[in-house]
């Protein structure tokens, strides 16, 4: 049986484009709002656009927080994209602030007002932990497509896998063992984005064969 990748549907943004991109690189990902699907997956993807507080509220409404935490602490791969990456942290300051999933040290803060917000467009991603399997085939700095106003801050230095400069230098990819976060949109970043999703698919397959 092929590895089961579940895209967590918590009603925050376009999930179909993430599924399309996985399909283009050979992985049939399933979109599901169901806590049981999350628990039985081999790898989960937490996508999402929108406000941090709304994101956590929707996860709570669908009883998804505990299953995601249980899944992640079991060592299976988690990929957070955009808002989904920000939710991996302890805290998000958007609209008064609130707690996140707390899977990674750090918080999501607003980018400085010295630059146009949201950041919409292609910016440089510079891997600082190029040995991580999420960067296989991508050791040079590359452009990726961003669309966000908040970004990670106070991240444990060992977890910063790539950085990007927009108003401030922020972690654009974070990785701590099985937990991976990508601030930009790999599903909209053409060839390099598809390469990262391919790499995540491989990480899930590898984890599945070692955890079993």
């Amino acid at each position: 049986m092929a590895a089961r990748i579940v895209i967590v549907d918590y009603d925050m943004g376009n999930l179909q484009s993430v599924r399309n991109a996985f399909k283009a690189v050979g992985y049939q990902a399933e979109i599901s709002p169901d806590p049981a699907s999350v628990l039985h997956a081999d790898g989960i993807v937490l996508p999402g656009m929108g406000a941090f507080g709304n994101g956590m509220r929707k996860l709570a409404e669908r009883d998804l927080i505990d299953p995601i935490l249980e899944f992640a602490t079991g060592g299976r791969p988690v990929l957070g994209i955009c808002l989904g990456m920000q939710l991996l942290f302890e805290y998000g300051e958007e609209y008064g602030g609130g707690p996140g999933l707390g899977l990674l040290t750090g918080r999501a803060t607003r980018l400085p007002d010295t630059v146009k917000l949201p950041q919409i467009g292609w910016n440089l991603v510079e891997p600082v932990a190029a040995a991580h399997p999420i960067f296989e085939g991508l050791d040079q700095p590359y452009y990726a497509y961003f669309d966000h106003s908040y970004a990670a801050a106070d991240v444990a230095p060992a977890d910063v896998a790539a950085v990007t400069d927009y108003g401030r230098v922020f972690p654009s990819v974070v990785a701590r063992r099985n937990i991976i976060g990508i601030q930009f949109h790999p599903e909209k970043s053409s060839r390099v984005g598809l390469q990262m999703l391919t790499n995540f698919g491989r990480i899930v397959c590898h984890s599945r064969s070692t955890l079993r």
Binding site: N20, A24, R191, G193, L194
Partner: peptide, 8 residues
């Protein structure tokens, strides 16, 4: 297009 094109 969304199935085959991976830019915005």
């Amino acid at each position: 297009a969304a199935e085959q094109v991976f830019i915005p």
